[in-house]
Measured scan of single mutants.
Amino acid sequence: SISSRVKSKRIQLGLNQAELAQKVGTTQQSIEQLENGKTKRPRFLPELASALGVSVDWLLN
């Protein structure tokens, strides 16, 4: 799922939720909701993929 991929990649990069949120241009709460499965397809998906160094396709599939 996107939530597990985001969380595992974030941890692999040594980032906390607030640091990832800053790179993406969103809030820590938005990252938390995404990782908890409350958000399925965030509006900041391209920025998120870029910050994590992955493709949008990788996040979604």
Rank of each mutant, 00 (worst) to 15 (best):
R41A: 11
V6W: 00
A49C: 05
V54R: 01
S50E: 14
L60P: 00
Q22F: 12
E47F: 07
N36W: 07
V56A: 07
Q28G: 06
L60D: 07
A21K: 03
K38H: 14
T26M: 07
G53T: 04
I2M: 13
R5C: 05
K38W: 14
K23N: 06
I11Y: 07
F44A: 03
K7H: 08
I31W: 00
Q17K: 08
E32M: 07
L34A: 03
V56E: 10
K7G: 02
L59K: 00
R41C: 13
V54T: 08
G25R: 06
A51M: 06
V54S: 03
Q12F: 09
T26G: 04
I31P: 02
L15R: 02
P42W: 13
T27R: 06
K38P: 08
S1T: 14
K9N: 03
G53C: 09
S30N: 13
V54F: 03
Q22Y: 10
T26D: 04
S4M: 13
E47A: 14
K9L: 14
P42K: 04
V6N: 01
L48W: 01
E19P: 01
P46H: 14
L48Y: 02
G37P: 02
S55P: 09
S8D: 11
L34C: 05
L45T: 04
L48T: 01
L60F: 08
T39R: 09
T27W: 04
T39M: 15
E32I: 13
L13D: 03
I2H: 04
R41Q: 11
K38M: 14
E19Q: 14
Q12C: 09
S30H: 13
L34T: 03
L59V: 04
E47G: 09
K23D: 02
Q28C: 09
G53F: 06
V24T: 09
S3N: 07
S30Y: 15
S50T: 13
G37A: 07
S3E: 07
S4D: 15
R43C: 11
N36E: 10
R43S: 15
S55D: 11
N16M: 07
G37H: 06
I31R: 01
P46V: 14
S50G: 10
D57G: 11
R10D: 01
K38L: 15
R43L: 15
A21Q: 01
I31H: 02
K40I: 12
K23R: 14
A51Q: 05
E35F: 01
F44M: 06
G37K: 05
Q28N: 06
L48R: 00
R43Q: 14
A51I: 10
V54L: 05
W58G: 02
G25M: 05
V24S: 07
K38A: 13
A21C: 03
V56Q: 09
N61K: 09
P42T: 07
V6E: 02
Q22T: 10
T27A: 07
G14T: 03
T39S: 10
E19K: 05
K40S: 12
I2N: 02
A21R: 02
E35A: 01
T26P: 01
S1E: 10
I2T: 06
L13R: 05
V24Q: 02
L15M: 15
T26E: 07
L20W: 02
S3G: 15
G25S: 05
Q12W: 09
G25A: 04
A51V: 13
K23G: 04
G14L: 05
A18I: 10
G53P: 00
G25F: 05
L13W: 06
V56R: 05
R10Y: 02
L52R: 00
L59G: 01
A18H: 11
D57H: 11
K40W: 13
K7A: 10
K9S: 06
Q28M: 12
L48D: 00
N16K: 09
V6H: 02
